[in-house]
Amino acid sequence: MSRVFDELTNFARARSLFILHYCTGCGAIELPPVMTSRFDMERLGVSPMVTPRQADILLVTGYVSIKTLKRVMLTYEQMGSPKYVIGICSCTVNGGMYWQSYATAKRLDEYMPVDLYIAGCMPRPEAVISGLRELMKKIEQGEANSWKEYYRNYDYYLGNQQHLFGDQWQTPVDVIGEAEHYGLVGDGTRGEHTALLEQVQHPLKPLEMRL
């Protein structure tokens, strides 16, 4: 019975996807053509959404500088599960053009699990559309489960974030609590990095929320 329901929800999920509209890098310039009449992603049931809490897909469009990455992390943790991450552009795969830049984070999947990459500098709108279709297929088959990995391996991701943002790094979201809620606590959920987080953690003041 639950299998039937799962298939049904996956079917429905794959057909109504909201993309969080956050242009992190230069790949974002190909999104207006994708969204508007010429390539028209709405025919796939995909449309842009302005707030993270209502969005399903986090589209990381290109290089993420360290300042942006903080916001991306915050946004990612705010999104409700199930959530999917697509890395557009070579820059999210391995640093791309900016492999030696001091200001950018090189590999996105060190900081958050990624479902799908669309490589290219920059990927054409057709590539973005085919990437979205690929994601829909994965969702329908129940394979797009990267968000579960974030809970299971939270310690690893948090460690990389702390490495980049400093030991004081914390977000307002209680990831471990959420992992317990979903029953997704794995071997990698707790570790030395989460222990460090528990030590430094303090209630965030409104000003600190600005990061």
Binding site: G25, S65, K67, T68, R71, Y98, S101, A103, T104
Partner: peptide, 26 residues
């Protein structure tokens, strides 16, 4: 600002004259 900072002027000093052509349009 600063969300899109990549340190262009520094990057260009580390690349060949001809490589920078691919960098500048960004």
């Amino acid at each position: 600002g600063g969300y899109l900072h990549r340190g262009f002027e520094k990057l260009m000093e580390q690349r060949l004259w001809i490589q920078n052509i691919a960098l500048v349009p960004r």
